[in-house]
Amino acid sequence: MSQFTPNMTKAAHRNWAAAERNRNAAGPDRTTAGYLYGIAAECAVKALFRDIPWTTDSKDGPVYAHFPQLKAKLRDAISGRGASQLARFTDQHFMEGWAIDIRYSDGARPDNATLEKWRTDAEVARAELL
């Protein structure tokens, strides 16, 4: 059992704040900002659907998935269920190009335009929590 109790809402805000601190840096810190925007967006989206009764914490379910697989799992889970609030987070352009393995990258990417797109997407998701 983990000693850390999940709180997706607080995690979304914490990762957003850390991303903002790294946003204007060059090189690897910009990559870190991109990584953290993705994590912030994931946590925000997960916070939005976590209390819906049809979600589970199965290791195969959306709670443990990362973009882009998270979008596919969420899309499958909300199909026909009237969860329009969540449907926009399954769009192919939402967090496009972000993947969890950015954490292993050489720090050369993302470019500024991609970083700003991820920032905007993360802010959209996070704004749903406010």
Rank of each mutant, 00 (worst) to 15 (best):
D121G: 02
H93K: 10
K117E: 06
R109L: 12
I100L: 06
W118C: 02
R109D: 11
A99I: 13
H93D: 14
E123T: 05
R109C: 12
F89Y: 07
F94M: 04
G107C: 02
W98V: 03
Q92A: 12
M95R: 12
T120Q: 08
Y104G: 05
E116R: 12
F94D: 01
A108P: 03
A122Y: 12
E123P: 05
F94R: 06
E96S: 14
S105V: 00
D91E: 14
G107R: 05
A108E: 14
I102M: 10
P110G: 08
A122K: 13
F89H: 00
S105Q: 03
A122W: 14
Y104N: 10
I100Q: 11
F89L: 00
R119Q: 15
A99C: 06
K117S: 06
D111R: 05
I100P: 00
F89S: 06
D106C: 01
E96H: 14
E96F: 11
Y104W: 14
D121W: 01
W98F: 13
T114L: 04
K117I: 08
W118N: 02
Y104P: 02
R88G: 02
A122S: 15
E116K: 03
I102F: 04
L115D: 11
T120D: 13
I102V: 09
E116Y: 00
P110M: 09
A113D: 14
R109V: 06
R119I: 06
F94Q: 04
R88T: 08
A99G: 12
L115S: 13
N112Y: 07
D91M: 01
N112H: 11
A108S: 15
R109Y: 04
P110H: 05
D101Q: 15
D106P: 09
D101M: 04
T90R: 13
T90Y: 12
F94N: 03
R103H: 09
F89R: 03
T90S: 15
A108Q: 14
E123M: 11
E116P: 00
E96K: 14
G97Q: 03
W98P: 05
P110N: 10
R119D: 00
A122R: 14
R119V: 01
R109E: 12
H93S: 10
D121A: 00
F89P: 01
T114M: 02
E123S: 08
D111W: 00
R119E: 13
A108L: 12
S105N: 12
F89A: 02
K117A: 14
W98N: 11
K117H: 11
W98E: 08
S105P: 02
D106I: 05
S105F: 01
N112E: 11
A108G: 14
R88L: 05
Q92N: 13
W98G: 08
G107W: 03
Y104C: 03
T114S: 06
T114H: 10
